[in-house]
Design a protein around this nucleic acid. Structure first.
Lengths: 223, 223
DNA sequence: CAAATATAATAGTAATACTATCATTTATGC
DNA sequence: GCATAAATGATAGTATTACTATTATATTTG
């Protein structure tokens, strides 16, 4: 696979020093993703991370202000990557409906393979998105952080998909709502199917989550 | 208004001592709800709460093991209350569709008045549900906590609504998914409309969130 | 009014979330 | 190849958090 890293950019305000710029920085990202998956975001600390990477805690702080900002960095990276995947899958396609279908596939189908083109394990990162990403923007500081552009890459994805919907149905008044409902719904259902199965119906069928949300979108648009 | 408190029950495993059983306990609930709203769940501590209620920190610990369990208690209370409201609104109604319509109204329309029948301010509690409740079940301990029945009242609501859907469309295979998509979608949109407006379309119209999710459900069922 | 129960007052501890300082490597420019 | 800068390591320290424990004082109840 080609090196997609070049395309993935994250708001520089999210870090003190760009983790992409050094060995240690990349180590911090790789092992953060692992450690957050292992022990959960609440129990994750820079102390524990620094022990895992055999570097002092203070070195981690040289890259990130705190674990909250690191989490926003990781989610930003994920949505920037997703945005890029959407761009690729819609490239050279004429039909608006086909573009939307491809995009919804990207948003709703599970991420099963680690492309391994870099220090980011996308499968594990996706698990963090499912389990922890809500915590990134559910904080008292959302408004300030939003002004700083911390959530831009997610907004870009939502806008991109909303625009595809508006291509199909120009006066549709719920484009953003429909898109965020699908994106976060998918994550929610994946979480439920693993931890609170009685809240979902997805065990029955492997692709049921993707099928459900695909139907949801096209049913609504056909109305 | 009649005293609805009698109907609202919360799993006793969620507290050390029932906060409903004493003046201090009720004070803890009332002021927790206020304080979490003021400073957010992350910055909320039992120390700060104890200062607010002029009681020692150790007294708070006599009621709740930790702030995480308190949050689950609060969300449990909320869903138990919601379940009761659904029961009331569907009582003596024959038409399955009307029952579902009423229920969806309860789930999607904003909670604007504080019934003030007790020490719980439902308007503020609803804000906590919108902003913080995801943190209640997105933790490493979900599976253990789920086994203990910590999330029962929420599951009851989801089941109740799913059953209404199945009354209308008996072989519908996505009942739970549709219900959780709506319930959490509503909360999500309310949060966005306040903090990340570009992710929603709800500013334009006061009732757009409720309208959108109502359409979503009935469009899907008519298919 | 005695006994039980609840609350208050106080202290203490390990872990968390940082900040600061200085020594040692490692990279880069001339 | 060496001086200089930049990055990292080693170490220390501090306020806050998340509790647990103990004893004294109220308050309730039988």
């Amino acid at each position: 696979m080609i090196n997609l890293d070049l395309k993935i950019t994250v708001n520089p305000e999210l870090y003190n020093k760009n983790p992409d710029s050094s060995e240690l920085g990349r180590k911090i990202i790789t092992h953060s993703i692992e450690l957050i998956n292992e022990i959960g975001f609440e129990k994750f600390t820079f102390k524990k991370l620094s022990e895992k990477i055999n570097s002092p805690e203070s070195s981690v702080y040289r890259y990130f202000k705190n674990k909250h900002t690191l989490l926003i960095y990781l989610t930003s990276w994920y949505w920037s990557w997703t945005s890029y995947k959407i761009a690729l899958t819609t490239l050279n396609i004429k039909s608006a409906e086909e573009k939307l279908r491809n995009t919804i596939d990207i948003l709703t189908k599970p991420i099963l393979i680690d492309n391994s083109f870099s220090y980011v394990n996308e499968v594990l990162l996706n698990k963090i998105i499912i389990t922890e990403s809500l915590k990134a923007y559910h904080s008292v500081d959302v408004d300030i952080e939003n002004k700083k552009g911390y959530f831009k890459t997610y907004k870009d994805v939502v806008n991109r998909v909303s625009n595809l919907i508006l291509e199909i149905k120009p006066n549709f008044e719920y484009a953003h709502m429909l898109v965020t409902t699908v994106i976060e719904g998918v994550q929610q259902q994946r979480y439920y199917s693993e931890h609170l199965p009685s809240l979902t119906d997805s065990k029955k069928n492997k692709d049921s989550i993707s099928n459900f949300y695909t139907k949801l979108v096209f049913n609504f648009l056909e109305q």
